[in-house]
Amino acid sequence: MPRSRLQRFWSGYGGYVLGFVSLVVIWHVAAVFVVGSVLFPPPVVVYRKAIVLIRNGVLFEHLSASIQRILAGFLAGSLLGIPIGLVMGSFRPARKVLEPYTEFLRFIPSVAMITVAVIWFGIGEASKIFLIIYTTIFIVILNTAAGVSAIAPNKIRAAEALGASRAQIFCHVALPATVPYILTGMRLAMANSFTTIVAAELIAANEGLGKMLWDGRMFMLVDDIFVSLVTLGLLGFVVDRMFRWSIYAFAGKYSPAT
């Protein structure tokens, strides 16, 4: 018997739907029956507030500010990190020289760099983008370099025996073999970028989801705080899904099966 579309939907996404519905239900029960305070608004209230903030454009303004910063910093950080990671993984002397940088700087959390970033670049876009680059670059470098050293030596040897030059091996073997590691690094970096951007906007920004949280605290706009929090959660979820989907769609063949 062929399965109906509904059945297929349920077996594919049923768990998700159930999970999200239960999250909202538990939130509602906790807010209305357990806590019962204006400091913990139930989902309906947050939803209504969100509609208002969407209508008057405030939410979009904050959201797009945060997204733009994340995207700019994340792309710049990845574009810098990938070649550095490839070089570090491929050439031992380069690794020796660059390791002090990566091994030292990656232990200084980007949140700790906020003050310096603001002093250097002011509270405008530059400081946020600097911080996201800082967050992204080390994760991407380390994953890329690890990917290069994980290449099976026989892949390189086979290329040598087929007449490939060193430069060709780099472009046609080392780079594609490392793609899954690069993408994993980027995915992790994206998750960390969320933490960084909120922290940075909390401290110094004129708009953004972090600024929205801060204003909420200053002016006791609890509903606004919750709208910001839910937006962050949804945004992260959607971006991560998109990342996974595009890995699957465009880079599935680069998965490390062989």
Binding site: A158, Y254, T258
Partner: peptide, 12 residues
């Protein structure tokens, strides 16, 4: 060269 295992093939 034909290698002992299959790890020399390019999976992509």
């Amino acid at each position: 060269v034909v290698f002992q295992g299959d790890d020399s093939l390019y999976g992509w």
